[in-house]
Amino acid sequence: MSPLIFYPVAAAAVLSALAVVTARSPVRSAMALVATLVSLAACFAMLQAHLVAALQIIVYAGAVMVLFLFVIMLLNLQDDPPETGRAGLRFGAGGVAVVLAGGFAKVLWEHSAGDGAVLAESFGTTKVVARSLFSDYLVPFELTSVLLLVAVVGAVVLARRDDAPGQD
């Protein structure tokens, strides 16, 4: 992993995440989140998780975020008005977050310093991840399909108009 690749990607991730939180237009927030997700996919690729990186873009950037944008456009959300009043809350939250993030970063840094394990060439390939997924994690995997079914049914029921034509 070269610092020349890591630092630009990390900076892009952090800046676009800040843009998600601060942008007043929901569409801009969503596009910034897409940038965050793509930067994180690059991080996954750097960590030899190629399959996860590809899935990150297909599932998150390609499907979930399009759903977000679709809903924003469907509701025709306008820009949020400038935040007023709760300056105390915002600066308080920001301050607490900076302190906590600093603490977390320090602990994580100290506890994961030094070299990690030596990885095989095949680490993170489809075959290896799939073997883990369909042996050690088979039951959670099957349960996931039930979860998705529940989510599909729930989403349809919730978003359905009661007075839509064709309904009883």
Partner: peptide
């Protein structure tokens, strides 16, 4: 760059 760098990045993103 080691995995520690990514852990720090993850902490920063989490709090953002």
């Amino acid at each position: 760059i080691t995995s520690a760098h990514f852990m720090v990045l993850s902490a920063v993103l989490f709090f953002i």
